[in-house]
Simulated assay, not measured.
Amino acid sequence: MTKVLIVDDEKVIREVLEAYFVKEGWKVLFASNGVEGLKKVGDQSPDLIILDLMLPDISGEEVCRLVRMDSNIPILMLTAKSAEDDLINGLVIGADDYVTKPFSPREVVVRVKALIRRTQQRVNENKLSFNNDKLIIDFVKKEVKLNHAILTLTPNEYKLLTAIVSYPGKVYSRADLLDKLQENGSYFEGYERNIDTHIKNLRKKIETDTRHPNFIITVFGMGYKFGGIKDESDT
């Protein structure tokens, strides 16, 4: 269930927005000041924050700045300020969008949904999964999971895997793959067979049956290709 945190000292605003988000099937969390809001962020890990700029203790700008120190959670700012500099400053310090008061609750819901979609798209761009989450590659963490268990790959194994998953079905020659392992793009022909060793070791880690691999397929006389089926949620 999607969780939204509303940080606003006006009870009426909190209640109105709650009614709309509950109708969407979301869980709604509240905070009436900045300190309470920061605590809720740490304790409850909401999926999105609706943040009023004018709070009774610390400003919404400061709350936003503190959240951004260790989190990329999307933030929608509510502001009575209409000056261009104030709005730009809110975006500069880390807000993803803003709505000026008075506002339409339906507009807030639409904007929040758009932020959630954009956030999910960014997540998907940084992570690929194949065969119904059997194999997951997190490019930000440089982490590979098989059946949700983290694998220990060498740097070369990781480079090879991330190279061939970029274009499933594309055949890579040994020379192509060796080129991926060397930053300057140069290599000696005699080293191409080393790719076979890396592939063999990689298969031992990601294949259930190395004699009948699902992910790294040998194309005889040509090289290797990735045979995993990309999960639809990543498209």
Rank of each mutant, 00 (worst) to 15 (best):
L128H: 03
P105D: 05
I88C: 04
I6V: 11
Y191Q: 14
D43H: 10
V4D: 00
E10M: 05
L91Q: 10
P168V: 09
R118S: 12
E143H: 00
R111L: 08
I49R: 05
L53Q: 15
R111V: 09
D97Q: 15
G94V: 05
M222D: 13
P155T: 04
Q182F: 14
F139I: 02
P155M: 09
R117C: 01
V112K: 00
L78P: 02
V12M: 09
K11E: 12
G42V: 09
R106P: 00
E61W: 14
H198T: 07
P155D: 09
D133C: 05
I49E: 07
K170I: 11
L202M: 10
K101W: 06
D97R: 12
I217T: 05
D209M: 10
L48T: 01
I73H: 09
K11R: 12
P102L: 06
N126H: 04
D179G: 11
E18R: 15
L178T: 07
P102F: 08
T235L: 15
I229H: 13
A19N: 12
E15V: 02
E24H: 01
Y167M: 06
S104W: 00
G37L: 08
V22Y: 12
K101D: 04
I116A: 02
L78N: 00
H198F: 15
I93N: 10
N147R: 04
M77V: 14
M54P: 01
L29S: 13
F215N: 11
T162I: 10
G25P: 07
G34C: 08
S59N: 11
V63R: 08
S129N: 05
R122Q: 13
V171L: 08
M54F: 12
P168I: 07
Q121W: 01
I50Q: 00
S45G: 01
T208L: 13
L29D: 09
L55F: 12
D234Y: 06
D138Q: 01
L161Y: 05
G25W: 07
H148L: 07
K3A: 03
M77K: 05
L29C: 14
K159L: 11
Y20M: 04
D209H: 10
N132V: 03
L55T: 05
S166I: 04
Y98G: 06
V108Q: 03
N89H: 14
Y158Q: 02
P213L: 11
V108N: 07
W26S: 14
A175E: 15
Y158M: 07
D52M: 08
K127G: 00
E36I: 12
T100L: 03
L29M: 14
G60N: 11
G190Q: 15
Q44P: 00
R211G: 10
I216R: 02
D47A: 04
G94A: 04
R118F: 05
M77Y: 02
D8R: 03
V12Y: 04
S173Y: 10
E62M: 14
E192K: 15
G221T: 03
M54R: 14
K204Q: 14
V35Y: 15
Y191G: 05
I75K: 06
F226Y: 11
S82K: 14
E125Y: 02
Y20T: 01
Y158T: 03
V140E: 12
K141G: 00
Q44T: 05
P46D: 08
V63F: 15
A19P: 00
I73Q: 08
I217A: 07
V112S: 05
L115T: 03
K180Q: 06
L181C: 07
I206Y: 07
T218S: 15
L76F: 06
Y98Q: 01
E207T: 12
